[in-house]
Computed example of a mutant assay.
Amino acid sequence: MSLSKSLLLVALATGLLLLIPLVAMQYTAEVNWTFSDFVFGAVVLFGAGSTFVLIARMGSNGTYRVAAGVGVVAGLLLVWANAAVGLVGSEDNPANLLYGGVLAVALLGAFVARFRPLGMSNAMFAAALTYVLVTAIALFVWTPSGEAAEPQVRLLNVLVANGVFAAIWAVAGVLFRRASAVGSAPNRQLA
């Protein structure tokens, strides 16, 4: 499939996904998106879909494409969760800005590796490690508050949720490592 057709499909999928909150707003007051929420959603969803299309075209086997999908989903979840509720404390906590470093490590590593499977694997493992380090730093800077009776429950929730997100990056690393074992050479079909 050509790049333009793939991007058109990403645009259509983005529009269809954004119809979900639009329709939900008609039936419940629980969903209350503003125009800027829809713009943010469109940019993030289309950006993630486009990134997947471009990276997946670099590999020549299915494992590489699945790994690319997992890596892009990890980045999408990072941005969406951080913007929606925050990964440490509320979304207004400045410590959440540190998670931008995880995306920077993943993207910079991918470019340095020239999207080769083994290098992509290393970039995803580096992103997972960065995720863990950022969480530790954020928790050191951020003091959990509220629910004085059980403060460790809130901390445990933060640790478990961030552990799951870090694990998604690691799974992408394992999949890229497997793709390199299969012998996926970069297949640069951008046009």
Rank of each mutant, 00 (worst) to 15 (best):
A138G: 01
V73C: 12
Y131H: 15
S121E: 07
I137W: 08
V141S: 07
L129R: 08
A148T: 12
N96F: 07
A136E: 11
G89L: 05
R114Q: 14
G75M: 06
V88P: 02
L108I: 15
V158K: 04
E147D: 15
V85G: 12
L103P: 02
R116H: 14
L118M: 01
F115A: 11
G101H: 01
V112D: 06
L108H: 06
S90C: 10
W80A: 09
L118Q: 01
P117W: 00
V72M: 03
R154Q: 12
N82L: 09
A81N: 11
F111P: 07
A83N: 08
I137L: 15
G119W: 00
L77M: 14
A136M: 13
E91F: 12
S90V: 14
M124V: 06
V102D: 00
A136K: 10
L159K: 03
L78T: 04
P151C: 14
V134I: 11
L108K: 03
E150K: 12
R114E: 13
E150V: 13
N122K: 06
G89A: 05
A84N: 14
G101C: 09
F111Q: 12
W80G: 03
W80L: 07
D92V: 06
V160Y: 05
V79S: 03
N157T: 04
A138V: 01
A110E: 03
A123T: 03
L139P: 01
F140G: 12
A74Y: 08
F140L: 08
V132G: 06
L139W: 01
A126M: 05
V72K: 00
G86C: 14
F140Q: 04
L108C: 14
Y99R: 01
